[in-house]
Computed example of a mutant assay.
Amino acid sequence: MYSPSAPKLSEPWPERAVLCFFREQIAALVERGAARRVGQFTVEMGGHGIYITEDSAGERVALFHPTVGAPSAVHHLERAIAGGVRSLVVCGGTGALVELAVGHVVVPSGAIRDEGTSFHYAPPGASIDADPDVVDALAGLLAEQSVPHAVGLTWTTDAPFRETPAMVATRRDQGCLLVEMEASALLAAARFRGAKLGLLLYAGDDLSGKKWDLRNWTASDARAKLLPLAIEATGRF
């Protein structure tokens, strides 16, 4: 059996980590001295930097961009867990399948498995549940901070340009609020490795109408607000 190895860092891996899809927000933390680069993933996987930041209590938290897509994101997750990480929060943007304002935060309670990676980590099935204790912890943190949010299913797909109107309607009927490309695989892999993982996602582009509306979602101020919450959240479960 093959086993992942952790990238070597200039200091020990923390037990907590944030997988953040907002490259510019990671850079902003570094620029103001709130995160320091301690290593990187292999060049073959994109060479993404690995950083250490701290929560409000001064506890260390690893921070890195996991890259887009289930196989690559799980590869990065596996290597972080191999380093000793046990509590992980994912923060990212998603497509809204229902009417949600840009930036509205959603805590996935589970994910529809329309990708291939999760089936290497969990028995076959249409969906995978998030750990309810983790979901409660994340929702509780958002409530404490008076952040409007929803809890519900997300649809994880490998093919974003095949999110057809008919498929969107089907997933919405199944209770999905969002669509993205990594959640079900990350949940399955973390569970397989005995780590706890939760997700804080925001509604970005809109797929709830007849036409795809980008809504300039990558410029949302939700990105700057969500990363600090994710860092704090790693200490809640």
Rank of each mutant, 00 (worst) to 15 (best):
S109E: 13
V102W: 05
V135S: 08
V106Y: 04
P132Q: 07
H76K: 06
A143K: 10
S109V: 07
S127N: 09
P123F: 11
H104R: 15
L97F: 07
A122K: 02
G110E: 07
S118W: 01
D129H: 09
V134A: 15
E78C: 05
E144I: 03
D133Q: 14
V90C: 12
P124L: 02
E78H: 08
V98Q: 11
R113K: 15
A111V: 00
F119Y: 15
P124R: 03
A122L: 15
S118T: 03
A111F: 00
V89F: 12
R79Y: 11
T117N: 10
V134D: 13
L88G: 07
L138V: 01
V98C: 06
G95F: 09
F119A: 01
V85W: 10
T117E: 15
R113T: 08
V135Y: 07
P124A: 05
V98S: 02
T94D: 03
P132C: 06
T117V: 07
G110M: 03
I112H: 13
V105G: 02
H104M: 03
D133M: 01
P124F: 00
A143Q: 10
H120K: 07
R113Y: 11
L141H: 06
A137I: 04
P108L: 04
E144H: 07
C91E: 11
R79Q: 15
G83S: 01
A96D: 08
G95M: 12
R79L: 11
A80I: 10
G93P: 00
A143P: 04
S87F: 13
A80W: 06
V135H: 07
S109K: 05
G103M: 12
V106W: 10
F119T: 03
G125I: 00
L88C: 02
V98R: 15
F119N: 03
Y121D: 02
L138D: 08
I128M: 07
G116T: 01
Y121M: 09
L88M: 13
R86I: 01
P108A: 04
V134G: 14
G92M: 03
L77E: 12
D129F: 08
L77G: 09
E99A: 14
G116E: 03
D133I: 05
V134L: 09
G84M: 11
A101T: 14
L142W: 11
V85S: 03
S109F: 01
G92N: 09
C91F: 04
A80Y: 05
D136I: 12
R113E: 00
V106F: 06
E99V: 05
G84C: 12
S127E: 13
P108I: 11
A130C: 12
A122D: 14
G116D: 12
G83M: 05
C91H: 05
G83F: 06
G103A: 02
Y121W: 11
S127T: 14
V85M: 04
L142A: 07
A122G: 02
P124G: 09
I81C: 12
A122P: 00
P108G: 09
V107H: 10
V105R: 06
L88T: 08
D136V: 12
G95C: 08
H76S: 12
S87Y: 13
H120D: 13
V102R: 14
Y121E: 09
G116C: 05
F119P: 10
D114V: 05
A101Q: 14
E115P: 00
S87T: 06
D114C: 03
G110L: 00
V105K: 01
A96E: 08
P123R: 11
V106I: 07
V105P: 02
V102A: 07
R113I: 09
V90W: 12
A101K: 15
